[in-house]
Nucleic acid binder design. Sequence first.
DNA 1: CTGAAAGCGCTTACAG
DNA 2: CTGAAAGCGCTTACAG
Lengths: 345, 345
Amino acid sequence: MGNVTIKDVANETGLSIATVSYAINGKKNLPPETVQKVQEAIKRLGYIKNYSASSLVSNTSHLIGVVIPQTEPGSAMVFENPFYSQILSSIEYHARLRGYHVIVSGTNADEKYFNLASQRNLDGVIVIGAYSEDFFNGLPSESIPVVLVDSYLQKDGYSQVKLDDVQGGYLATSYLLEHGHEKIGFLSGRRKEGGVSLNRYNGYEKAMNEAGKKIVNEWVMTCNVGFEAARKITRKIMGGLDITAVFCTADIMAVGVIRELNSMGIRVPEDISVMGFDNLNIANYCTPSLTTVGQDIFEKGKQAVEMLYKHLAEEEEKGIRKLSGGECILPLEIIERESVCRINA
Amino acid sequence: MGNVTIKDVANETGLSIATVSYAINGKKNLPPETVQKVQEAIKRLGYIKNYSASSLVSNTSHLIGVVIPQTEPGSAMVFENPFYSQILSSIEYHARLRGYHVIVSGTNADEKYFNLASQRNLDGVIVIGAYSEDFFNGLPSESIPVVLVDSYLQKDGYSQVKLDDVQGGYLATSYLLEHGHEKIGFLSGRRKEGGVSLNRYNGYEKAMNEAGKKIVNEWVMTCNVGFEAARKITRKIMGGLDITAVFCTADIMAVGVIRELNSMGIRVPEDISVMGFDNLNIANYCTPSLTTVGQDIFEKGKQAVEMLYKHLAEEEEKGIRKLSGGECILPLEIIERESVCRINA
DNA sequence: CTGAAAGCGCTTACAG
DNA sequence: CTGAAAGCGCTTACAG
């Protein structure tokens, strides 16, 4: 059982528990032979540190919280969109490398998430996605580093990992324009002020304007960011539209669009070209495979962890709790596959 | 800050910390007015229980560990296969309903996972997938409930959540036979003794035997359980095989097969019918959509949590630490979509 | 270079 | 029905 304690190690070595603790944590610089004696005893006894105890006294738990949005209240977490699982796996991996464990959590609409931070003495929190302003109330903002991924909130003291979404929308649209498309649809989730969807729309608009192309109102479509919602809007609207291409701001939507166009007998890309955004695994799974704006999700998760870690290390070293509120903007690139073709205007 | 303690609540109410603790945990049955006084003070003060402290003294953390296999060592977690993210989301959700938090973790090949159980005082562990025998060494088996999901290890005292895989293989194959197929290929991961793949193979074999159909050696194919591996084996082997249908023991493989057949100009299902297993979301994403043996992943995650919870509740009530080592076998059903067609033999 | 001791915030026999 | 007190396993000034 895990009931070998620091006390047993002290007895075994003939040292005090204080010294054992110092040795374990590399605090005072003890003579190497003392440290070694302790390490040997630890191995011999199978000692394992009790984080509950150390967390209680030192106020650091080596635990980070990861929050993932819950679309349908009352249902499971939003793992319909593989984006979340992909970034979560990257976060877990990099946290582990740094010696942290990860508590994943959806959000109870009724309960304040950040209670968890106090209950568990979390060292930091990574928030993925967009939340309402009052989600962040009750967050001990000066006391715990928070990294926001893909959030459009501009909170002081919070670090951010994001994309240049305007640029992404611009890239995608330019790519379509270069391939001869002029009548280009746009499909996204709700375009909220400062949000990802609106930013990508702005990029789309910018590219269209620069190319001197008009955007027809009906080309701009909105639905939930999901596979089924995208199928539905494709069936109801997109099929009847006079467009040669559509830019979807999420791969999960683009895959839905392709799936439905296939069903309707509308050929992709011959009749309609489809462009996505994310470069998820599923972009390879559909036929035709999806040309998309690629973001590096693995890197995104890594950066989130690294930003957190930097704070934590600084805190420890200099005793600062002041957060820099840094920002990290990751690059984007076009990933060419089969869902877009060249046409002659 | 979260530094309102039980002591503050005691001061506020004029009660002792013991009584406050009793009130919070509903231990002795205190008079309702005492309990209410405490609850009011808690609300007023914004008291939040410190789990590090309670875990330290009571040896229960309200924390459960979830282990997910890591295919490529050194890379991220196996979220390539959406199965893992889907079940994880179900587990997190149901754990949360029960008041537990979830620590997700891949496995460092070098390190013993179960250290985590001691370090964090985990109340229980859910292990998803198959692991080598010595993964389980160092697990405090009598002291902490463990639920194995889709494991083929027969460990005493571990609960199991699984499928009737033989039955699943039988169902899939029978479905194909009923649709007139006789030359039916089989694609799975490595068929280890007692493992999921071998069991599904046995179901396949049984159905073929009962129908009086011979299985040709080359029809039985093996590759990694992944999209790319399935594509590759399709290109190299399956294309040249004299079969009219193939049963893949995982949707992620079936989707790879369909994708590659599409690329090769082999029509699905007209030239080759494809059958999957799992009923993941991606079964809808491909064209044609995938006919598959459906398991209820949401329910699987739920059962895993419930089995754990049952143990935990029993422990608390009767002080038993003896595990029942129960078993839960979930039902399977054919989900018809478009990737299988009827042929005339 | 090392140790005795206080204390982190809880829970839980035990006593009254 | 309620409380004083010990103790869970650590860390960390402080003293020597």
